[in-house]
């Protein structure tokens, strides 16, 4: 008797907007974020799980509400979530396997893809912090030039 029965609840207009915000951001930035996550975690299953986590997170909702700097915010969030979800945590020692890479690419790879701090990279590569930052600047300057 009197069994609690919850009927189907129609989503409110706000919920629909929120869902649409998440999905519209996913449609716009999903491929980019997946590419970033795959650079950090080269395992498609885990990368997809991080991508789902990323686009259903509360931070994404706040990005949807503010129009400015969405790309930067998504890049940073995708990177931080991917680094946190990596099966192999970041170690203190930096393995430098590919010596053919130029310094700029190496710095970008170690910092962005492998999650090493700029200080650790500077120490390992025997560069100053300013020069490490300069390497990142140069790397993107080359990318920007037509």
């Amino acid at each position: 008797m009197g069994k609690m029965k919850q009927v189907y609840r129609k989503p409110t207009s706000q919920e629909i907007i929120r869902q649409a915000d998440h999905l519209s951001l996913y449609d716009r930035y999903g491929s980019m974020a997946y590419g970033i996550i795959l650079q950090i975690i080269p395992e498609p299953e885990l990368a997809q799980s991080v991508l789902i986590d990323l686009f259903s997170s509360l931070q994404i909702r706040s990005y949807a509400e503010m129009s400015a700097h969405t790309t930067g915010n998504i890049i940073r969030l995708a990177r931080s979530k991917a680094i946190a979800a990596r099966p192999v945590p970041v170690t203190q020692s930096i393995p430098i396997s590919n010596t053919n890479d130029n310094t700029e690419k190496l710095v970008f790879d170690l910092s962005f893809c492998q999650g090493y701090s700029l200080e650790a990279i500077a120490k390992k590569l025997q560069l100053s912090h300013t020069n490490v930052l300069k390497s990142i600047y140069t790397y993107f300057k080359h990318l920007r030039s037509p």
Partner: peptide, 20 residues
């Protein structure tokens, strides 16, 4: 980053919708 973008499988979008 768009040049290095990888389209995720369609199931990811459904999973995100479900999670939301």
């Amino acid at each position: 980053f768009l040049r290095n973008a990888v389209p995720p499988p369609p199931s990811v979008r459904e999973a995100i919708e479900l999670r939301i």
